[in-house]
Computed example of a mutant assay.
Amino acid sequence: MAKRGIGKMRERATFDRSIRTPDGSGGFTHSWQEEHACTVEYIYARGSEAVVAARLKGQAIYKIRIHQSAGARKIEPKWRMRDRRRGTEYNIREVDAISDQKWVYLVVESGVAA
């Protein structure tokens, strides 16, 4: 198997954190604040039952690989990922920042509410 290099990382993505701001009448408004931007690699997600079922509902599930960094280690499942070229927003379902010293792996899903 060939080693994975930076050559596959052609896409740009932004990772946003959810913030609540007081609205002045005792409530809060919900918005997103950009926390981290980087290049990403989309990794094909094999057709497990969950992936096939999600596709039937119009959802897309992707595995994402990004370089390990201080900003990448802060990413949490309650954040979102935005594809900079296509404008697609993804909910982050899983973050694995500990199993590989060089990479952070994410599972993201589009087409569903957070």
Rank of each mutant, 00 (worst) to 15 (best):
M1T: 08
A2F: 12
A2G: 10
R4Q: 12
G5R: 07
G5Q: 08
G7T: 14
G7I: 13
M9H: 06
M9K: 03
R10C: 08
E11A: 15
R12I: 08
T14I: 09
F15G: 02
D16G: 00
D16S: 10
R17G: 06
S18V: 08
S18Y: 03
I19L: 05
R20Q: 15
R20M: 15
P22S: 14
P22N: 12
P22M: 10
G26F: 06
G26V: 00
G27C: 05
F28T: 13
T29K: 10
T29Q: 10
T29I: 14
S31T: 14
S31Q: 10
Q33K: 03
E34A: 10
E34P: 09
E35Q: 11
H36Y: 15
H36W: 15
C38F: 02
T39D: 09
V40F: 11
E41A: 01
Y42G: 12
Y42N: 13
I43E: 15
R46K: 13
S48F: 02
S48V: 03
A50C: 00
A50I: 02
V51K: 02
V51S: 02
V51Y: 01
V52W: 00
V52Q: 13
A53Q: 09
A53H: 03
R55W: 04
R55K: 15
R55Y: 09
R55M: 12
L56V: 09
K57R: 13
K57I: 00
G58A: 08
G58F: 10
Q59F: 03
Q59S: 03
A60M: 11
I61F: 03
Y62V: 01
Y62I: 01
Y62D: 03
I64F: 09
I64R: 02
R65V: 04
R65F: 05
R65G: 08
I66L: 15
Q68A: 11
Q68F: 12
S69K: 00
A70Y: 04
G71W: 06
I75Q: 02
E76R: 11
W79E: 05
W79L: 10
R80M: 15
R80T: 14
R84L: 11
R84N: 12
R85I: 05
R86M: 10
G87I: 06
T88Y: 04
E89K: 01
E89P: 00
E89H: 10
N91E: 06
N91F: 06
I92T: 01
I92P: 02
R93H: 08
E94R: 11
E94G: 00
V95N: 11
V95R: 07
D96T: 01
A97H: 05
A97E: 12
I98D: 15
S99H: 05
Q101D: 14
K102P: 03
K102F: 14
K102V: 12
W103M: 07
W103L: 05
L106V: 03
L106F: 05
V107N: 07
V107F: 04
V108R: 01
V108H: 04
S110Y: 01
G111L: 09
G111M: 07
A113N: 05
A114I: 11
A114D: 13
